[in-house]
Design a binder for these strands. Structure first.
Ligand SMILES: [Mn+2]
Ligand SMILES: [Mn+2]
Ligand SMILES: [Zn+2]
Ligand SMILES: [Zn+2]
Lengths: 141, 141
DNA sequence: CAGATACTGACACTGAGTCTCGATTGCGAC
DNA sequence: GTCGCAATCGAGACTCAGTGTCAGTATCTG
């Protein structure tokens, strides 16, 4: 469940047969510097040397590799996030804007119950929580 | 958990002090005719007499009233849906494209456990399932 | 170090949603 | 009924997100 370093991602890229290009290295650094989630255009803005199309291509590639995931904000817009390769969900703080990953075996097993009850076979799912993080709650006690 | 009729929504609008205008009536009919979920532009296309801005304004109003909800498709794009006012989630069939609502008390109680374990206080959440519906599974047995 | 080809960047394009502002219109008051 | 006026509307320009094309460039393999 730990953060993936740009370095490790570079190794993953070449291991999978993708080329290690300057734009890709560049974008990995930028994303790591942008905090816990970022919009596509924030990346574009922070990497002026890299073309727009390349930013979107790279975002998609990294999603396919499982090291970038989408975050659905409360208004429905999408953000992106360097994320652990494992399955996880997001808890978004509406006060400070932070995103935390979490996973819950109990939750996954409830989904299996839903499958049995409804006949729907779940191949993938997405769960986002919106609320206030522990730090913000402590602060405004 | 039942479908909300255009008529009932019209009554809801005036009860809340909103005007019953021709564009609003028109859009409610159109949405009811568009099936279980639809894009904003599908509504625009199906209601040529109504201005684009009004379509988006009306979508937002109906979301605020709780009779339209967002559906996050598997690629992250948003669709809309005339939906029950109660809290619910979506099961999207990747084969036939249908959307079904469901709710699960067990799931909600797991979220309360997550709250206690993490200190994050959940004010809202969003869960979408992607898979194959019972009908499609039966068909391609 | 050369060649095949994966990758890039400029640019034009689509789709989704917002904003402004002058023109309409629904509806409560009379 | 009709009057007044705030609520609403429509046109259109604008922003932001993402895609497709295509000629040029750079990476990796041999
Ligand atoms: Mn899960
Ligand atoms: Mn729920
Ligand atoms: Zn917070
Ligand atoms: Zn189906």
């Amino acid at each position: 469940m730990s953060q993936v370093s740009p370095d490790a991602i570079e190794r993953l890229l070449s291991r999978r047969g993708y080329r290690l290009t300057a734009p890709r290295r560049n974008l990995l650094e930028v994303m790591a510097s942008l905090g816990d989630h970022f919009s596509a255009d924030a990346v574009v803005g922070a990497a002026p040397e890299v073309g727009r199309a390349t930013v979107f291509r790279t975002l998609r590639l990294l999603q396919d590799l499982g090291v970038v995931c989408q975050v659905v904000l409360d208004d429905g817009t999408l953000a992106y996030r360097l994320a652990p390769e494992e399955h996880h969900h997001h808890a978004l703080c509406v006060e400070c804007g932070s995103v935390e990953d979490f996973s819950s075996p109990a939750l996954e097993s409830v989904l299996r119950e839903v499958e049995e009850a409804t006949g729907f076979s779940v191949e993938a799912h997405r769960l986002e929580l919106y609320g206030r993080c522990a730090a913000c709650r402590a602060a405004s006690n």
